[in-house]
Simulated assay, not measured.
Amino acid sequence: MDASEVRELLTAEALDLLAGLPPSDSTADAVSLVAGLRRAGHPPARVSAVLTQHRLRRKAVAKFGPFAERMLFTEAGLEQASRLGVAAQHAGRYVAAGLTRVADLGCGIGGDAMALAALDLEVLAVERDEPTAAIAAYNLAPWERATVELGDAEAVDATRVDAVWLDPARRTGARRLSSPDDWSPSLDAALAIARRRPGGIKLAPGMDRALIPADVEAQWVSGGGEVVEVVLWSGALARPGIRRAALVLGPQGAAELVAADDSPDVEAGPLGEYLYEPDGAVIRARLIGDLARSIEGRMLDATIAWVTADRLAPTPFARAFRVLERWPLDAKRIAKALRERGVGTIEIKKRGVDIDPALFRKQLKPQGPNAATLVLTRAAGERVALLVERVD
């Protein structure tokens, strides 16, 4: 989004027009809206800016819920913004640590700054891109203790605040944020800032673990079954004795596994009645061993992140399945067994075997009214197929 589009968007006429647009979910609706706005005499630049926001607001509901209806967005800012529930977890850290003045350095559209301000913290939101800073100022307007400044994260005087939050942006031309070369500010610069003041640094969950310093707490976060980030916490924001954490946000609330370091593995053993698929945050944090011990389980294979157990032990850190059948990983044999069960819809999970699930499904030629879940993996080195059912 360029400066001229933001200037057009922030006029009273454009904002009133945006607020009055009816819901729309299809291309046909969008075409009709454009035609109607043009007939009403609105200039093309205003129509373009308003309809872009109308589209982004619909998209943003997945992250911001009903708050999206009063916010403004940029494409890149929405993509990088933390989900509302995740941002609330971030903000809670600062409150728990007794830190009251926080600088959000590289605030983007202001999502995390909003969560901080909502907990009555004094927030200094800094953004170097002028159009994005203007969007952040609009989003933060309801909070009197939130201020937006145009500037560079590395140039901010951190002595003005008690703590910092950094969400490094993607450098121009970079496709992902798993390499420190893709970040702005760089990882070294962000860590330097977070050592001068207690801080949190949000990074891509797949970052190279070798880059994680020994003096920070690394917390992987998952929501909706997806690992969304790893945050490096420093100073008073890092909990004593904890260097690894897996935070799982689910329908029942937040649950967390913590440890002083990567947890020791448990031994592999025979397939039990139940199979557990660890949450991605647990896998990334390398806390599978602690999870397995907590449910009296064992690894299905020493090299694969499946845990098996003889009893059901509900846990927020893994999905549980009851094992119905075990077969060698032979497509013809599996196809015959599934036909006998009238299985026409198959969910395939695979880990540790070089198989394309889509091609394998075609080999099975499923048909029938029933549905099933098939796990393709290794057990004690043997390639196996497990027919399982989800345990709610």
Rank of each mutant, 00 (worst) to 15 (best):
A30D: 01
T27V: 14
R145Q: 09
G253V: 14
V323K: 01
K336Q: 04
G280N: 13
D25M: 06
A113Y: 07
L119P: 08
V375R: 00
V391G: 06
G250V: 02
P251L: 15
P205D: 05
L376N: 07
G36Y: 03
I201A: 06
G98M: 04
I193L: 14
G235E: 13
R38P: 00
D152N: 12
A97N: 02
A380F: 05
E217I: 01
E149H: 02
L300I: 10
G272H: 07
G206P: 12
R298T: 10
R341M: 08
R341P: 02
A380K: 05
E347M: 08
A115P: 15
G151Y: 13
I242P: 06
M71R: 10
V216T: 10
A309H: 11
A14S: 09
A115I: 07
D112R: 02
S222T: 12
A268P: 15
D16R: 05
P316S: 07
G85H: 06
D279F: 01
L374V: 00
G223D: 07
E340G: 05
A174E: 11
G235W: 06
A96Q: 14
E273A: 15
T373P: 08
A320H: 10
K332A: 15
P142R: 04
V307K: 05
D290L: 06
S178C: 13
P240D: 01
L287R: 04
D120Y: 03
K202R: 12
A218E: 14
